[in-house]
Design a protein around this nucleic acid. Structure first.
Lengths: 330, 330
DNA sequence: GCGCTAGATGTGACCGCTAACGTGCCGCCG
DNA sequence: CGGCGGCACGTTAGCGGTCACATCTAGCGC
């Protein structure tokens, strides 16, 4: 910067003004400075700037180390929104899920000088850990979080599960079975809850839910179990990958979908539409989720208000060919 | 830091020494400093440290804005490896693909003070852009890159495509059809090349390849076209998502897999194993890819050697139920 | 012609840390 | 017993910017 100033015959401060677009620089001076910068191949050093301003234009994202479709897509959505707002994203992923590793990741990001932090914390424990995180950085929980104390941006899982369940009931099925996700995932719990209360409201009996780990493999194993029970005519599966496993299990058992059995998934992964048969599922708009979280965080950063929150992102039921009216002759 | 020094009754430099684990501090002094740090809730400011040392412990990743399985998984692999090496990852994703936007992303990362840069650049154009990128930061191309001038870590696409094709030939198919990825993807080109040369070597005639855009939808559309041609008994599809579309198209046309038609995909996405039928495919080890790129980058950073390279990561053919010996009575 | 004001530019200080060197002390050796 | 080297610690000077303020110039009204 000093070199540029010297070459342009001005002070370093004027160079700084040019960089920051200050209006108090004569066009002619600005030109000279710009030319000098170009000539010397000068690049402003944002580390130095961050040191003095205290702002780094960087947002930290704590993410559970996973390639699950949801968190991965959310991360991309966040990146996109942050980019548009002129922010960089710096990622700290978690190996373990205990309280201290979440706190540790938050701490590392803070030290690194991020202006705000987004935590993709689908697990209950991770969400709780946020309450004990080092306190003085703006922070938003994405996808799930503790009930209060931390602003949360999330998809309405209960509503999504309810619409899936209701869809199946509306098709004439007496009741709906459920393959849930792992109970340490808040989303899994909420989908379970949405399913259960919908059944109860409709006066239908809720069968005992089965529990998987989100993987197609789990869906397959549990699907085989369900396939032996010919009372089962409708299944709401907590995510598309497990639903794929169920599809496969049913196919192997000779149970036709949707003729013998209707299935609904959750997520609407890109493949879902091409499953055999195409899967009815609940779409989550992860892009919107990421975008809202970033904007909420930015608002908190500028307002200083720690307790803002954002309305739920509404999921959408996508009806395809894996569900149909119940017409087994029984 | 000054406060800590004062409270501990030492100079700020001694505090610095404690932080950096210098051996030239008496245990007793160290204790006092540590206690003072704790008491004041002191956190070292890594921005200030980065400013003076010129190293930020941060690696930049330029990534094409996509949720394609490959790039996304690679990103996670990179994050994991970087984390283990004590580095943070900062992501700059690309919207457009022209030369200048790649250069721009690299530039932005440099300004931000990253110590080195990884570019996930599967597209030919992006790869070429690297040659014109601002030159003085250690940089590694991941997944694909220009032939030379930039160190590259990649999977052996040609070898993978060859083993897929050979597998089909070995099963007795006279020739193998190919659904390729978009030609601006280097991987797509290489898989095409591996397929073609394998056929040529075997003396089989190469049918005209079809071209899709990686999506299940494209696979479906092209699959329908192929389904009308009853000469087709074996298809090598350039990725699993398109293969899924093909599977579906064949199913609709009543062509049984693998009895009438064998299909091989590429990637081994988690779902592939649960397709109907389970998909024979070529697995890429993205974790290994990410890890190797990070280590290569770190080596370049410490050695100063710009032209190191890394051997190909070898893909692995996973044989499942979508391929079988040709046994059409024709 | 003079004083005043606003705009353009320059001058330190400082952000929080580390590198390089300086200083006092002790123990060891010849 | 003097000198020398190593250890523990302190002092000073930046890293590359921005902020707050001082200074200088030109334009304006009277």
């Amino acid at each position: 910067m000093t070199d540029v100033a010297r070459l342009a015959g001005v002070s370093h401060q004027t160079v700084s003004r040019v960089i920051n677009g200050s209006p108090h620089v004569r066009p002619q001076t600005r030109e000279r400075v710009l030319k000098a910068m170009l000539e010397l191949g000068y690049r402003p050093n944002s580390v130095a700037r961050a040191l003095v301003t205290g702002r780094s234009n960087t947002l930290g994202v704590v993410s559970f180390d996973t390639t699950l479709y949801g968190p991965a897509s959310t991360l991309f959505g966040i990146e996109r929104a942050a980019h548009e707002a002129g922010y960089f994203i710096i990622v700290a992923s978690l190996r373990a899920l205990d309280r201290s590793s979440v706190a540790d990741a938050v701490e590392r990001l803070r030290r690194h000088g991020v202006d705000g932090i987004l935590v993709i914390a689908p697990q209950v424990e991770a969400a709780d850990a946020l309450l004990h995180a080092p306190g003085d950085a703006p922070l938003v929980a994405v996808e799930a979080g503790p009930d209060r104390g931390v602003p949360v941006v999330a998809v309405d899982q209960i509503g999504g599960a309810a619409s899936a369940t209701r869809h199946l009931l509306d098709l004439g099925h007496g009741t709906v079975w459920h393959i849930a996700g792992p109970p340490d995932f808040l989303e899994a719990r909420q989908r379970l809850e949405g399913w259960r209360t919908t059944l109860e409201t409709a006066g239908a009996e809720a069968p005992r839910p089965l529990t998987g780990d989100w993987s197609p493999r789990a869906g397959y194993d549990l699907g085989r179990r369900l396939s032996r029970n010919h009372d089962v005519t409708a299944v709401f599966v907590a995510n598309d990958q497990m639903a794929l496993g169920v599809l496969r299990a049913m196919h192997e058992s000779g149970r036709r979908i949707p003729d013998d059995l209707s299935i609904v998934g959750f997520d609407d992964i890109p493949e879902a539409r091409y499953f055999l048969p195409p899967l009815t599922t609940v779409r989550q708009d992860f892009d919107e989720l990421g975008s809202r979280s970033v904007h909420l965080l930015l608002r908190i950063m500028s307002d200083g208000d720690r307790l803002l929150s954002s309305p739920h992102v509404e999921p959408e039921l996508i009806v395809r060919a894996s569900t149909s009216v119940m017409h087994r002759a029984r």
